[in-house]
Nucleic acid binder design. Structure first.
Lengths: 329, 329
DNA sequence: CTGAAAGCGCTTACAG
DNA sequence: CTGAAAGCGCTTACAG
């Protein structure tokens, strides 16, 4: 290509990389030759020189979960505008896969990584910061050097609970995806913040939480169905349930009719996420919407800012959740 | 690393690549050193030498469509077992993005590509075959050299239509995602095969198709809603509709109640895909299920076979679709 | 069975 | 403003 353009490879490299001092004449010749040959620089060679890959890695548990596919979508559309590409990595919940993803940083396969879920302890992940930029989305990280974009779980769940109470509900059950409930100071942890939002609203109305109404490991539609079956056999039944996800809510409402439970009269069901089909379900889901598009966009912008070296203190962005009233509550 | 192991880099390379003649002693030393240093070979350097990237590109329109995210999921789990990685590329329906994806073949970024949708004319895509393996999934390609895995659209739609007829329906409307109906010899084209399956069933029962009941460009939930509105104002109304996708079906059933249309009595609605939430909708969808998991698995296996040089004639695999009877039809 | 050397396609001091 | 040369981390003839 340099030959066709009649310049040195050095000059070609310079025009490709927008190096300042190149004469217009040579620049034009290079562009002409590039066009003529359909030349595209080989990524691998650039990576090997340690130059940027113009790629950012997006690590998610799995893309069949609509929350994550929509998040990826928002991220990809944003980085695309900034002339970056995206490498999607699924962990399937395995620690090792997250580590492999972080290794891409070490090998210059990606310039930065967005973690949309955390599998490994933070102490381990931290060690990869020296190889490239890391940002976290939808998880809390209490580390000054890491940019983070999250939904405001505390206020989202508080408002959701207030909403149920305003509808006259007083016996509210609670689901979490984890295998136990975690309690920390506010602002430190995703699940803890959710639960604190829930109990804060309860306390404001002198209500208390019955531990028998706590359901752990609740992820899927099937989990939701199992939960409703348990509920239906309790002597003391709750009159509302906060499900932690639209999947679990879907499972619950799907079985209500056959168990002779009226929704929302007997049981109000509150989802989280506002997935695309939530409003078309047999009972359109009242749910707490997460600002997925904004989350994806902001985390992508912040990360690329950091890659480009805008070295201000790491940003911590908190976005509002929003109650979407429909029929299930 | 070679230094630590006390061998030449040549030997290290040979160990890593399973080259046959290396003494056990040196091999062990290399493994020991690899482990000690946490060494991982740098992809970029291997790619530059033209060695394989152990990566296959998966090109889809967009991952927020569950059909494609589930397909990717199946592909990824399969290539993972075969020690390959996956690079997901979304075209968003743009020809240029598909070409960029194919360029990865040229630059050795991927060893092969699975096209799950076709944006460009086949003549253009064909030109990339010399750079690496290409396989097609869920689209018809009439080219001996290209492996292809598809669902049997003809029989799927034929059975779906038969099902509607068996329920007493005779006035059946038809939707397509394209902007026009294409007719070709059977086995040549995805949409044509669907339509042929439909009309073949019709003819077997001496029924005919009223062209006023053809709806084009039907993709989304909103499209489905628009279609139902049109239908409701027709003098001659159909008593069933084949929607071409669960999204369109969802749009139709979502509006039925407010337009005073009884499903399935007044209008039977038949979806295609069997998306995860199809059975939880206000009217659980009767739908034609595509064998997504098998499709993904088979196309991945065939492609990797070809990459490894099992140069038999390109396989054409056709998988059965399946009617899932529920309440919408 | 093993190693020294060339080369893949780039970028970056260095020198002019 | 421009170019010759070194080097990034690998693999692959070539020679032994």
């Amino acid at each position: 290509m340099a030959q066709l353009a009649g310049v040195s490879v050095t000059t070609v490299s310079r025009v490709i990389n927008d190096y300042p001092h190149v004469s217009k004449a040579k620049k034009d010749k290079v562009f002409w030759a590039m066009d003529k040959l359909g030349y595209v620089p080989m990524q691998a060679a650039r990576q090997m020189r340690g130059s940027g890959s113009q790629t950012i890695g997006v690590v998610v548990p799995e893309i069949i979960n609509p929350f994550f596919s929509y998040l990826i979508n928002a991220i990809e559309r944003t980085v695309d505008k900034l002339h970056y590409k995206t490498l999607i990595i699924q962990t399937f919940g395995r620690k090792q896969n997250e580590l492999t993803a972080l290794d891409y940083l070490k090998r210059h396969q990606v310039d930065g990584i967005i973690l949309c879920a955390l599998e490994n302890d933070w102490d381990i992940i931290k060690g990869y910061q020296k190889y490239g930029q890391i940002a976290v989305c939808n998880e809390y990280v209490d580390e000054d050097t890491i940019p983070m974009v999250i939904g405001d779980q505390f206020n989202g769940l508080r408002q959701g609970t207030e909403y149920l109470i305003s509808k006259g509900k007083t016996k509210i059950a609670y689901c979490t995806g984890r295998d136990s409930l975690l309690l920390q100071q506010r602002g430190k942890n995703f699940d803890s913040d959710r639960y604190l939002g829930f109990t804060t609203a309860l306390q404001a109305h002198d209500l208390s939480f019955n531990p028998a109404w706590l359901f752990t490991n609740a992820h899927s539609i099937e989990d939701g169905q199992a939960i409703l079956k348990q509920l239906s056999q309790m002597a003391q039944k709750p009159d509302a349930i906060i499900t932690g996800s639209d999947e679990v809510a879907t499972g619950i409402v799907s079985l209500a009719k056959s168990l002779n439970i009226q929704i929302p009269q007997d049981l109000s069901v509150l989802g989280v996420d506002d997935q695309p089909l939530a409003k078309f379900l047999s009972y359109p889901l009242t749910t707490i919407r997460q600002p997925i598009t904004q989350m994806g966009q902001q985390v992508a912008e912040v990360l690329i800012d950091n890659i480009k070296g805008t070295t201000e203190p790491a940003q911590k962005i908190k976005l509002d959740l929003q109650i979407v009233p429909r029929e299930s509550a």
